[in-house]
Structure formats: structure tokens, C-alpha cells
Amino acid sequence: MFIQVDRATKRYKSGDVETIGIQQATLELAKGDIGVILGPSGSGKSTLLNMIGGIDRVDSGKIIINGINICAMHEKELTEYRRKQVGFIFQAYHLISHLTVQENIEMISQISENPLPMDHVLSAVGLTDKANRFPRELSGGEQQRVAIARSVIKNPQVLLCDEITGALDYASSIQVLEMIQEINRTYGTTVLLITHNQAIAAMANNVYQFRSGEVTEVRTNSQPVDARGIVW
């Protein structure tokens, strides 16, 4: 398995109050597959994604990516892991407002060992003609496409997508999902996508149902559907 999460637990403490982030969460995803984590708000989906992405640490349990336990890594190794293997896409885009579209993407290509060609990526996300625009001058869907391009340009082994359609209308959402699927197919990128939209689960190989920090159900789709066929 490319991604293995083994009984990962994370608790947050604020004063005397302890909150459970995730509880004994376990999941597996094969290389080149798309996984969707479903669950209501506050169920711990993003916490798990952050741990798989190496931006947060588990209290107990293991997270093994491509055979390496990232929980045993120290800060510098985690930085290198994120730098070389992980691509992130967020619901809130997190684009840098004073950098142009191309510069936002360049922000990642310049630290990547083997980045994809800029023209190729810009064309893939349909933003070639808007390369010199600033994020403020783009629609929500376009901004999300910049965020996707930014994550994809480094050609990561794993792409982590956190509620990427949450702020988009239906048409833009489908466009973005199509793009994710295209990347997965073209580059063999393993994709883990979290959403509270049940319909999106149809495009995944594996679906993980999350509730109160635990994986309560795992489903496998033998025939994942095309993103353009998803309706909600």
C-alpha cells in the first residue's frame, strides 16, 4: 500500500479541556488510486489529512507513506517529505495575493527537483491567458485551478485535497474534479480527497466514512465514475 494509516490517534488539549482529533483511525490506499474521505464537519477528516501531509503529528499510531513511517521523522525530514512528495490543495485556495498566477505556481516549481513545464501546467488548468493576472482578478473556480496547478507542478507522489469544491458552484466543482482525475490518470498520482459531499465519492477507488475521529466504514468502488458524470 502506498498510504497506510495504522490506528492513528490525535488529541488536542486546551487548558483542562481535551478534544479528540482522530481516534484509532486506520486506512490504506494503493499507489495511483483515488481515495475519498467522507464525513460531517468536525469529524477529524482534515486532521487526518494534515497528518498524512506531515504538517501535524499523531500522538500514537503510525502513518506509513511509500514504506516510510513519517511519524518517526524529525522536523527537517518532514519538511523534505512535504517538499518532495506531497501536493496540497485547500478549500480556501491560500494563494498569495500579491503574486501573479504564474508566480504563485512558480513558488512551488522553484523548490521542486523535477517540476513539470510551466506552460504545460498552465495549459492543463486552462489559465495560459491569465498567467499574469493577480488572484483578485480571478473567479473562485479559476483561483482553485491555480491552487491545483501549484500543487501539481512539482509532480507529487501524493496529492491531498481538502474540501476543494467547498466554495465552488457546481460547474466549477466538476471542472476541478475532472482536473484532479486527469492528473491522477496522467501522472499516476495517488489522490486523497476529503469532502462532505457524498456524490464525489463516486469517483474514488476507496471511500472512507469518518465519524467522531474514527473511520467507521470503508468502501471500494470497482468502477469509479468519471468526474463529469457526478451529479448533486
Binding site: S97, H98, E103, S109, R136
Partner: peptide, 29 residues
Amino acid sequence: VRKPSWLERSLKLGKVSFSLKFMLREQLR
């Protein structure tokens, strides 16, 4: 979320390194 100024818009930084672009943009901002 401020609008980019005309100076930021008119600045074309195609060839320079990203770090320099970033620094220049930071200052213009």
C-alpha cells in the same frame, strides 16, 4: 484583500528568479 496597484500590475518580472520576484513584490505591496 487589496487591489494590486498599477505599479504591481505593470511590473513584468518574467526572467528574474522567483526569490527576487517575491522580494520585489513584497516591497511593492
